[in-house]
């Protein structure tokens, strides 16, 4: 199937196309505020930004039902937002506030929300593989038709449990999608130094339907995800998407001096030539589906929402220290 026909098959109406633009802008502006909060020492811990990879989360999550599941990663804000998380409750969690998604007990790397099918972001690389595959097991066993998406970076390709659960998923034809975000760097090390052979040969060895996708093209991601998600939903087994993308910032906000592991020119090239939001915006304009003013209006609306969300979180109270012992056991 060609890209154009597949996009048509995925049923991309103008509303969806504009919503994808808005969602990508929301993630970008959310993360810029995270960076700001962090550098102003208002946010404790670590902040791993998703800037540059927005089309992956948005393209895939737009292909999901509200009750579908996902597992996320330490770089997970984008996945949570794309699946429908509320920014003010996200910011509150990032700042360790009682109003946050996890009452301040999880933080940036552990956002979880049953209401949006978010099984939790996981700070063990590959840690979501078992959980997502298990959610797909439940879906099949209970006959709910729900699909689970396991987001992970190419760094997780080094973890054995990923292949163990992929093996189970294919043996038992479980509706789970393994979404490998290849942003090229395992923390501070290029993936060519850590990954032998062809990445796609790995799912192929298990007979899992797999596809390489331009992760900076939100429509292409959405088309590929729609096809593989619906295939899984029909009971035809798991899928694997290898999404080529790029992490604009460092491994975390504090990773500033990074020329020892990747050149500035490479970063510049991705930002100027392959930015997912700019590419999608330009396409919307060139197709006559939106004008520049409309896109700017979306950007400023989202910016206001994010500013209000930050204000809510900054003003929100911390949890009472006495709650530290709560929620250890159900």
């Amino acid at each position: 199937m060609t890209t154009a026909t597949r996009q048509a098959a995925a049923g991309l109406d103008v509303e969806t196309l504009l919503r994808m633009y808005r969602q990508m802008a929301a993630i970008r502006l959310f993360e810029e505020r995270v960076s700001d909060l962090y550098t102003r020492a208002l946010m404790p811990g670590l902040a791993h930004l998703y800037i540059g990879e927005e089309a992956v989360a948005v393209g895939i999550c737009e292909a999901l039902r509200p009750d579908d599941y996902l597992t996320s990663t330490h770089r997970g804000h984008g996945h949570c937002l794309a699946k429908g998380a509320a920014p003010h409750l996200m910011f509150a969690e990032l700042l360790g506030k009682e109003a946050g998604y996890c009452k301040g007990k999880g933080g940036s790397m552990h956002i979880a929300d049953p209401a949006t099918g978010n099984l939790g972001a996981n700070a063990i690389v590959g840690g979501g593989a078992g959980i997502a595959t298990g959610a797909a097991f439940s879906s099949k066993w209970l006959g709910t038709g729900r699909v689970a998406v396991c987001f992970f970076g190419e760094g997780a390709l080094g973890q054995g449990v990923l292949y163990e659960t992929m093996n189970l998923a294919q043996l038992w034809k479980l509706p789970v999608i393994y979404a490998c975000e290849n942003n090229l760097y395992n923390e501070y090390t290029h993936c060519s130094e850590t990954t032998a052979g062809d990445m796609l040969a790995r799912p192929a060895a298990l007979g899992i339907a797999a596809e390489r996708v331009d992760g900076q093209d939100v429509r292409e991601v959405h088309a590929a995800a729609s096809a593989i998600v619906e295939r899984a939903r029909r009971g035809e087994g798991p899928g694997f998407l290898l999404l080529d993308t790029y992490r604009y910032r460092g491994h975390h906000v504090g990773d500033v001096a990074r020329e020892y592991y990747r050149p500035k020119q490479e970063e510049q090239r991705w930002m100027s030539e392959r930015d997912p939001i700019a590419l999608h915006g330009d396409w919307l304009v060139s197709e006559g589906l939106a004008d520049r003013a409309a896109l700017e209006r979306i950007q400023s609306e989202v910016a206001s929402e994010m500013d209000a969300a930050v204000e809510f979180a900054v003003k929100a109270p911390y949890p009472d220290p006495s709650t530290v012992d709560e929620d250890v056991y159900a």
Partner: peptide
Amino acid sequence: KDRVIDTPISEPGFTGLAVGAAMTGM
């Protein structure tokens, strides 16, 4: 065999799967 399920020799895999299954209704 739907209730008493043989797994591969893959302890981290099927234990991890069971964690996710337990979270989602099993």
